[in-house]
């Protein structure tokens, strides 16, 4: 019975997730469209509501092209390896006080551990395509994601020290007890997290692995049709997951004035994060790969470490 419930929950989340990804792509295109003095998609359905669906149908109906010189099994496996972990991390996210799948007491650890596997999909895709641009994109991607995972995790450590738990629900409940969202005491951590998250997601201005003006399309240059759709799906799923994590850690999860149910607050906050990423994409030029590495190692990691020390000191001396 319990197993059945789990499967039902997983399938429901997957379906909702597909819908969420569909509309976050539309949301992105609309936001960027208006920022660029144009309308964005508006032909399919009201406000272009069906645009992404049309796009995806097109991708699914396309011929499945695998380059002759590609390493077939790895080439086929790569999009799956990229998507599965991005989806699996949704298991621990607590959407509201009582909507969650696994009340894992090491939720944060699970989230970070599983999400790192996505990188494997990137390097598998880039390597197996047997294309120089893909290879370079994959190399950049791996270097970047690994470098930025460190400040990302270190910035979360501050939150964990304060809350004294790795469980997502308890982190939110802790914020309820102290009556303060952790973005305020952990503002430095929040900044580091936001910057590292953008790099981790390969989003503009840190979208170097798929920098189209340099590397054509980066690691997924050779992918088309539904395999390409899978990579896109993985990317947006991961973006949603990272914004859900940020909501939980820094913005008090489902907490908010009672006139709206908790889950709505949660989703609204997630949309806020997504919006910031779209906004940055429409505004900023792309950073250079060596600048990005330097920034990660020389600025973000020391800042995150400083934050941990300060947080620890406060925790011990002030007895928070």
């Amino acid at each position: 019975m319990e197993l059945l419930m789990m499967v039902v929950y997983a399938v429901t989340v997957l379906m909702l997730l597909l819908g969420a990804v569909t509309y976050s792509i539309l949301f992105e295109r609309k936001v960027i469209g208006y920022m660029q003095v144009r309308h964005g998609p508006n032909r399919h359905g009201p406000f272009g509501m069906l645009q992404t669906i049309a796009d995806v149908s097109k991708l699914l109906m396309k011929e499945d092209v695998i380059p002759k010189a590609a390493d077939r099994p790895i080439f086929i496996l790569a999009p799956v390896v990229a998507f599965v972990p991005a989806f699996a991390i949704f298991a621990t996210i607590a959407w509201s006080e009582n909507i969650y799948a696994a009340d894992l007491n090491i939720g944060v650890l699970y989230f970070i551990g599983i999400s790192s596997i996505t990188t494997l999909g990137v390097i598998m895709g880039g390597w197996s395509s047997n294309n120089k641009y893909s290879l370079m994109g994959a190399m950049r991607g791996v270097a970047q994601v690994i470098s930025y995972e460190i400040p990302l995790v270190l910035s979360i450590v501050g939150v964990v020290i304060l809350a004294g738990t790795l469980n997502f629900r308890e982190i939110v409940l802790y914020q309820e007890t102290i009556g303060l969202w952790l973005i305020i005491p952990q503002f430095l951590a929040f900044l580091v997290y936001m910057i590292a998250a953008i790099a981790e997601l390969n989003r503009s201005p840190f979208d170097l692995p798929e920098a189209e003006s340099e590397l054509v399309s980066g690691y997924h240059t050779e992918y088309s049709g539904f395999r390409f759709a899978f990579f896109m799906l993985a990317e947006y799923t991961y973006a949603l997951a990272i914004s859900a994590l940020a909501t939980t850690l820094f913005l008090g999860g489902w907490l908010g004035p009672a006139f709206l149910p908790g889950i709505v607050w949660f989703l609204l906050k997630m949309c806020g994060f997504m919006f910031i990423w779209f906004w940055l994409r429409a505004t900023l030029p792309r950073a250079r790969v060596d600048h990005l590495m330097g920034f990660g190692w020389k600025v973000l990691i020391p800042l995150a470490l400083l934050n941990i020390v300060v947080t620890a000191v406060i925790k011990v001396w002030m007895g928070w």
């Binding site: 003006s213 900023l284 792309r286």
Partner: peptide
């Protein structure tokens, strides 16, 4: 040029 550098919006502003 800015499109090459990776900024998308300037392109559309310039063409306007």
């Amino acid at each position: 040029f800015l499109l090459d550098i990776g900024a998308l919006s300037p392109f559309l502003y310039a063409f306007r």
